[in-house]
Write a protein that binds this DNA or RNA. Sequence first.
DNA 1: CCGCCCGTTTGATCCACGTCAACGTGCCCG
DNA 2: CGGGCACGTTGACGTGGATCAAACGGGCGG
Lengths: 247, 247
Amino acid sequence: MQQKAAIPVTIGHLKSACSQCNLRELCLPYGLSNPELELLDEMVGTRRKIKRHTHLYRSGDSFEAIYAIRAGFFKTDVLLEDGRDQVTGFQMAGEILGLDGISTEHHSCNAVALEDSDVCVIPFAKLEELSRQVTALQHNFHKVMSREIVRDHGLMMLLGTMRAEERLAAFLLNMSQRFVARGYSQQEFHLRMTREEIGSYLGLKLETVSRAFSKFQDEGYISVQQKHIRIIDIPGMRKLLNHQSPE
Amino acid sequence: MQQKAAIPVTIGHLKSACSQCNLRELCLPYGLSNPELELLDEMVGTRRKIKRHTHLYRSGDSFEAIYAIRAGFFKTDVLLEDGRDQVTGFQMAGEILGLDGISTEHHSCNAVALEDSDVCVIPFAKLEELSRQVTALQHNFHKVMSREIVRDHGLMMLLGTMRAEERLAAFLLNMSQRFVARGYSQQEFHLRMTREEIGSYLGLKLETVSRAFSKFQDEGYISVQQKHIRIIDIPGMRKLLNHQSPE
DNA sequence: CCGCCCGTTTGATCCACGTCAACGTGCCCG
DNA sequence: CGGGCACGTTGACGTGGATCAAACGGGCGG
């Protein structure tokens, strides 16, 4: 983004600088003082470029660091022995990847880039060390983990109680909201994932996802052109969520 | 359990003692040295008794502490505006409740005791303070949060990809495993929750849960007598999980 | 000890979504 | 520029689990 290296690198030994990062309001540096930010800059060792459709880490990899997404888009998924898998999340700039690895010292899911991406590598041992000294960092980190838990509960709710169209509406509104927080349009965006990945995330088959997209378009809620989505009627979409329960 | 107070109390000002607790291998004290345990004892201010069917906290309550279950059994659930709700977890002795509250300083789910229970109140500010000094505590706490995230991913997998009988099998094996870790029988236990609560947790209706119980019994996997379950064929149950995928 | 009530079981029917199949469509590479 | 291929759409049909309904059983209060 800032400079294009003449030699292609997969692991860039560029220094990151949290103090300069325009995502710091969304990420671990939030609310830190300048001297504290400098400590954080030291801790975040390197950045790493991840090409589209390659893994940042795989289930079973030993856990050493968490990753802050500087630019790009990821999915995480888990795999069952029998081959079934499920997308557990889509992550965008400013969000943290790798928290699943802390519990066992090994990652328990795969993280795959859905577009060429750029992450800050945060060695976990150093994070723990620094968060013993910087209270605000410690607190931010705890909030990040807790937010992940709350997010997961929301997804469980979706998977456990919602019907297909509600799930897709919830998904689109969630995307919209996250794009807004990053300064993009609320109603118009580009989805980086396939219908199958959306389906896996929402516990639906890709055909069902496709049909729901078509239905929303027919009813004037959205306009769909491949992966390009425009939400025409946001309040209408919201109503889809709350009202129509089968009981 | 140890002594019955003459006066009924809901908030007991009994000192807890992590150093004496027989659950310390499952809980935050794991691996701490004796002097560190004493610091922990100081931090854990009080214990609190929660009667069956009463709330430990409610969604929206301001967040001040997390809770370690000393004895008893809880469920957590989230509520949608339209009245639909979903059980997001069942918690037993040695497990931690309340982590959802860190992110917004308010709880985002309800915690209800399914039997008379007893929890250690861990003021969160003090926990953060102490975990800045005691590395092992800090690390344990991070592991507890991460474990919760991994658990949630497993549940998402269940809700997103498994059929009814697989879900129930997974649920029963999970219960069994957690009872073993607490020194109870692997094959025989008492469920504290109703069929409806199991259904809500598994994303099924209570009738479906009931039918699956009956089917398992007919096929000789388990014997069911109300809430009392005996698993007869554990390896058989495990096979139910992996093999029979529809694709 | 009886009767009520909540939780559970079981049966009959329905329907949302999965499955299978065919056809479009944008895009990359030769 | 054209052919292949992954991704997406749409249709016809099947089915697992929801829904509706009725009856059962066990625990508890009177």
